[in-house]
């Protein structure tokens, strides 16, 4: 059972960037996509920044396949629902008794664009940046150690949690628990299924705390890291430029919307 991680090692330029630089880059795409005005701004960010980055990181294929799987169903449903049922809009296409409204279609395009920019940014981060490296980098810059630990451990333990839930389901069905059928039956089945999961996790957490303590987790003093995070003067400047870019995008958005 492996960890819940999308990272693919392509030995690309993006893989070699410091995780904080990657984070700043993604932050810039996200802020620019959402703050700039107009229905087409998020599309522009997606096409001009996120997509070229994915190509540069050599993850274009997994990136597009994952993005399409999520965005396409959303785009179709939001277009149909908002287009057909927008109240009081201007009809532009007639489909029998129904019609697609101009305002509804614009709204659908806007929300699809935003989803694309947000999802694309996070997907790009997940595909090109190791979560553990990102958390180590954050911890080195003062993020609370316990917080970065929880993020990492949760990602790794999630698949195991699901396997445990399946075992509990099997064990209770083997004792004659009926889990299919009416809503009442399903609700009653929740208690025998969730309580072992919760109580089992509490036992696990206690053991994990002991194991961490035995590995000097709470020891104060300087820490070292096996994983070497590359950084450079250029990257540090780049990060500040990107932060400046984010602020500029927000100001530009406010000014242009007036």
């Amino acid at each position: 059972m492996s960890a819940f991680s999308l990272y693919v090692d392509r030995n690309s330029g993006l893989n070699r960037l410091n995780p904080l630089t990657m984070l700043a880059l993604i932050g810039f795409c996200l802020v620019a996509g959402l703050a700039l005005p107009g229905a087409w701004a998020p599309y522009a960010v997606f096409l001009l920044a996120i997509l070229p980055l994915a190509a540069g990181g050599r993850v274009l294929r997994p990136f597009l396949s994952a993005a399409l799987k999520i965005v396409l169903p959303f785009a179709v449903s939001v277009t149909l629902i908002q287009g057909l049922f927008w109240t009081g809009g201007t009809p532009i296409v007639h489909l029998g008794p129904l019609s697609l409204k101009r305002e509804g279609l614009i709204f659908a395009a806007q929300s699809t664009g935003r989803i694309l920019a947000v999802l694309g940014s996070f997907l790009l981060l997940a595909l090109t940046t190791r979560t553990d490296a990102l958390m180590i980098a954050l911890a080195q810059h003062g993020a609370p150690k316990s917080l970065t630990y929880i993020v990492l451990a949760t990602l790794q333990i999630a698949p195991r949690f699901q396997a445990k839930a399946n075992t509990i389901l099997d064990a209770q069905r083997a004792r004659g628990l009926e889990v299919e059928g009416g809503i009442g039956r399903r609700v009653r089945a929740l208690i025998p299924l969730t309580i072992p999961l919760v109580l089992g996790s509490i036992v696990d957490i206690e053991e994990r705390a002991i194991a961490l303590e035995a590995r000097a987790f709470s020891r104060s003093g300087p820490k070292t890291s096996l994983l070497v995070l590359r950084d450079s003067h250029m990257q540090r400047i780049g990060r500040w430029v990107l932060v400046g870019g984010m602020i500029a995008a927000v100001i530009l958005g406010i000014v242009l919307r007036r």
Partner: peptide
């Protein structure tokens, strides 16, 4: 620990905390 992605890094976790 769940905080490291490879066996080598997992084994190193305690040493990192000791500042080796």
């Amino acid at each position: 620990t769940g905080a490291r992605f490879t066996v080598r890094e997992e084994v190193a976790f305690g040493l990192e905390n000791l500042g080796v």
